[in-house]
Design a protein around this nucleic acid. Sequence first.
DNA 1: TTAAACGATAAAAGAAATCTATCAATGATG
DNA 2: CATCATTGATAGATTTCTTTTATCGTTTAA
Lengths: 299, 299
Amino acid sequence: MLRRYHYLVALANEKHFGRAAEKCNVSQPALSNSIRQLEKDLGVSIVKRGRRFQGLTREGAKIVEYANKLINTESSLTQELSLMREGLAGILKIGVVPSALPMLTLVTFQFCRAYPKVELSVKARNTTEIERGLDDYSLDLGLTYLDVEPLPRGRKHSIYRQNFWVLTPIHGPFEGRESVTWSEMVEVPLVLLAPETLSRQLINEAFQDMDLQPTPQIQTDSMLNLSAFVRSGYWSSIVPRECFVFCSEPPGTRILPLTDPIVSHDIGLVIPERDPSSVLAQSLFDYAKDIDIEALLIR
Amino acid sequence: MLRRYHYLVALANEKHFGRAAEKCNVSQPALSNSIRQLEKDLGVSIVKRGRRFQGLTREGAKIVEYANKLINTESSLTQELSLMREGLAGILKIGVVPSALPMLTLVTFQFCRAYPKVELSVKARNTTEIERGLDDYSLDLGLTYLDVEPLPRGRKHSIYRQNFWVLTPIHGPFEGRESVTWSEMVEVPLVLLAPETLSRQLINEAFQDMDLQPTPQIQTDSMLNLSAFVRSGYWSSIVPRECFVFCSEPPGTRILPLTDPIVSHDIGLVIPERDPSSVLAQSLFDYAKDIDIEALLIR
DNA sequence: TTAAACGATAAAAGAAATCTATCAATGATG
DNA sequence: CATCATTGATAGATTTCTTTTATCGTTTAA
């Protein structure tokens, strides 16, 4: 029904007629023609053409924006219809900030049990990508930082506070301790997350606020890799405590509160303000409001 | 592009396959088929079929709702495009409560001068019809009572207060007076608007609040007709003062303040909360915010 | 009982979209 | 500089979707 608009959106994403056609399972001329037809119907040129795809015109960008709206509206319709027929069903695309991934199951557990026909498509993304995904309709819901710039748009519901703790070898510099302070962390061999990760940036901020200069010997963008370094018995690290809620800390390591100060950030769900809004997203969002995360964490 | 959805909306409005087809300028089987096709595509039955059109199914109603959203989105797109090409242009459908009709020109004058390519399609409607029109996308903007139940939804902007005044023959019972009280009105021969008009209902409310029983000898739903009766020299009437702002009171009649108490109602623009919202409606709405109606009234 | 109204159906014509094959222009590569 | 790969446009044949005309079976009203 919205065939041409689908083609256009694919083209806008792929920036390439051939690839876009492939994504749509049609031949390249079919897609080319449809775009031309769309240009003729709307009376404006959509694509800057110079023997290559040179991007969209101003009008083209506007049309893509509306094409997304149209496609979203139609998919909401089918969602509502399947809701009326067989209860909630369909695919819910949720973007999750990496450090919140382990917690996602807590948020969705009851919902998934209640609606077995709903498929969750989880996408690990950073805050910016989540924001963009909610804007361009490639995501329906986000689980992200609520108190970090740029603040997410849409309705928000806080799920838990993420605390930075210390991951350290059992027989390392903090052996026997029950907590560690930030200022102590600059004195020990450090492995930290890579600077491009948001968690690391928040850690840096915390250090800066205290006029401390951490000197990580190793930086990695993989939590597994980071754990391995700590397990080796030499390095310590700073990690979101909630990452080790389910898989407990790796053997040979301990996880301790990091104090003076306690640094924490608000993480929660974000649902974009759309008309119509995704029934699935709305439903999970409402479900999450009734969850007592603290209770689930303690067991 | 949204052909089938257009057909469906026409069918929902006309409740008749033949007439709907006519509205769409296609043959009846064409429309019949398209609806069937739509049912097949969406996998639900839309129309209750019993040899006659028997109304929509529950799913059908939902689909019509979304069809309207889709159509509105596409028409917003073309509006935006023509805005980018040639400035504001297109048709703006505005629903106006009858008693506010004379004032509409004040609201729209500057806007129409500024954007000569915008066509205004004015529809005289009562408050309920305006509310429904804004819901079902047959209106883009309303000029209606803001303080009368049911309160309109959407964003509102007050334009002026409508006051009830007395229209009376020059040589009638109130000759030489500068104002009249409500309680005096039950003593004189009355012609009033018909009971189904909102203005009349508001007048009735006012009388009731004072425990007065008006005894109109004549009721009419036409203001012209009402004026004629007053001109005859025998009857007096109660009318919204603003109806006589431009066409001054008819010869042989005078218009006087009606006091104890002064009864007035708030009239203004209502723009529905839609996504996307009509560029034209939004634009007129914003324009109206800068208008100083009082200043225009006094000249 | 008859006539009119309504919507479904069938067959044919028309329109739209797609595919395959090919071309022309660009840019990269040796 | 010649060659080749890439990219998107074009042409013609084919398929799929829509529409029209004509007709039919029910139902409702006269």
